[in-house]
Design a protein around this nucleic acid. Structure first.
Lengths: 330, 330
DNA sequence: CGCCTTTGATACTCTGAAGGTATGAATGAC
DNA sequence: GTCATTCATACCTTCAGAGTATCAAAGGCG
């Protein structure tokens, strides 16, 4: 078997995601026939059928599903290789820290201060992204280290160290009937929607595209072992592509920035989950934050590519854990 | 920046490893001029100088070193994607278990038995390889799960669970002066060589190509965090490409299979380190096994690609840890 | 100091793989 | 049965990648 080219993987991922050759070709900026041929050639090379296609429907085979997962990972690794090389070539190397603005447990200033004190020669710069993007940002080489909510991130390929755990709070309009409650549970939220259009009673994390075998629940233990866990106790914590302001490509009436989201919450159009520390930063008269008693808490962590070997990353991780440990004592 | 092609990465890795365009071209089965052009084009795409070249010498820049590391990882990910897709397309899917024959702490039969009892529908098959190859075998998709010595493996991209710890024993000829000792230390071994031609007083693990920043020592803590550790206490445990029967491409008088190695040990030509459990399996009148008092012990672990999501892998890991735990009680 | 070997770069040619256009054929909706 | 949709096929075109021949610079050496 000759080695695959990234072009072939990109083509396949496009088709596998669109499940439609025409749309995939359009997305790739090419005509449909050469795309069909390329996929056929890929299947011939691998000796495996990846897509079951009729003129009306395209479906992934088991091989195709496997390849979709692994091709995404491989493509990330390739772009990461390029980007890291570019970054290493810059005159004044920097430590790129990925995070979603305000999702830092209030620790960011102290972490940056502590990190700067370590004099690594790599000043820190922030790479701000939307909620849930941080893991990908680390995997494809746009950042060196990140702060993210472990439960919302697909941590594959990353190592991480938890910093703190805090509950999600539900933000609702002050004139919502729920606002009089001292706490709510998910079942109380029937019908209310989140910024991404999903139903609020599913919790803050979208489980779609989680990449896990349907019907299986996996969770990571402290020692790094993935075990199948039967129960649903932690099922909310396995999402991958987070919500909270992210708007999917398909999102119809999705809001993406915080001011917009707060406005819609005040109007009663949507509700939204926020980590508790973030809510302290946005006290607003017309919004009430409520504890949700059957929602697992959020774990803020510092994360980095598993194959990282930079001293600056290690220094940042040390700084982050030290600050978190100090904060936990207060 | 357009995405890189794996062809470009393969070309670069070849040149970076050979540090000579002509030899690299030969290895790639192509002429030298197009290779030179391809590398130049790669540098242009990235906007970075990867190689400092005169007509007499080729050297890696900092960017080039970074790219060499990451390109290897990315290429492994690409081939893994292809192989896993092929594997998923097979009629009767199997669990491919990578190991070096006899390096299993004596647990393999019981692990296989325990695994078979779990009825995953994926019968186990063994993928035998040379010592130290298991990690790569897992990364590039030739196997789904493996048994390996953690200290000898480059565990990047893998998750693992330790099974047991046992000392390395030194195998020497019965008529060697050392054979009368009850135990030895590394300093006693001056001048003796190992199967790969390296000096025995360096311990069983080759530190070359370890990929870590020179002058830094890294070790993995229980929680998955890589920390810089100043001391040399565990320095022997960071090797990547193991020895013990592997013969490097450069190896001149290297021996590769066990019978051959034992013969050379009997003749006094070489000495060799083996995990204790393996020596029990090869009692030979003309070979003496000695404890080495300043050598860190070997940790046998079960390992799997970090992004694995297979129930069969999880079942195997459960089986392995259960058997190891039971064995530890005896 | 000058010759020679080694080795990467340049100039040019050529081939084939990747992409485009036109069209066919199958499938499901109505 | 008709029609729209969508994937496959046939055929053509182009340029990127590979080859050959050659140049030029850098060390080694007498």
């Amino acid at each position: 078997m000759n080695d695959l080219e990234t072009r072939q993987l990109r083509y396949f991922v496009a088709v596998a995601e669109e499940l439609n050759f025409g749309r995939a070709a359009e997305r790739l900026g090419m005509a449909q026939p050469p795309l069909s041929r390329a996929i056929r050639e890929l299947e011939r090379q691998l000796g495996v059928v990846l897509l079951e296609r009729t003129t009306r429907r395209v479906e992934l085979t088991a091989s195709g599903q496997t390849l979709l997962r692994d091709a995404r990972i491989a493509l990330d690794a390739v772009t990461a290789a390029g980007r890291r090389a570019q970054h290493a070539g810059e005159a004044r190397p920097q430590l790129r820290v990925a995070l979603k603005a305000d999702v830092d447990g209030g620790l960011l200033p102290r972490i940056l201060e502590e990190y700067a004190a370590q004099e690594t020669g790599h000043p820190a710069t922030l790479v701000l992204g939307r909620y849930g993007e941080q893991a990908t940002t680390l995997r494809d080489g746009r950042a060196d280290v990140g702060l993210l909510l472990l439960d919302a991130a697909d941590a594959r390929g990353l190592d991480s160290e938890p910093l703190l755990t805090e509950p999600f709070l539900l933000a609702v309009a002050a004139d919502d009937p729920l606002a009089t409650y001292s706490e709510v549970c998910l079942a109380d939220l029937g019908g209310r929607t989140m910024p991404d259009g999903k139903l609020a009673d599913q919790g803050p994390l979208s489980g779609e595209e989680c990449g896990f075998v349907p019907g299986e629940r996996w969770q990571r233990t402290a020692s790094g072992y993935w075990s199948a866990a039967g129960g649903l106790g932690t099922s909310g914590a396995m999402g991958v592509s987070g919500t909270l302001g992210s708007l999917g490509a398909s999102g119809a009436s999705a809001a993406s920035d915080l001011p917009e989201i707060f406005r819609l919450i005040e109007l009663g159009t949507i509700v939204c989950y926020f980590p508790a520390s973030l809510t302290h930063r946005y006290p607003r008269p017309d919004i009430v934050y409520l504890p949700v008693n059957d929602l697992p808490p959020a774990t803020l962590a510092v994360a980095w590519p598993q194959d990282s070997h930079s001293t600056a990353v290690a220094a940042f991780v040390r700084a982050a854990t030290a600050v978190a440990a100090a904060a936990a004592l207060v």
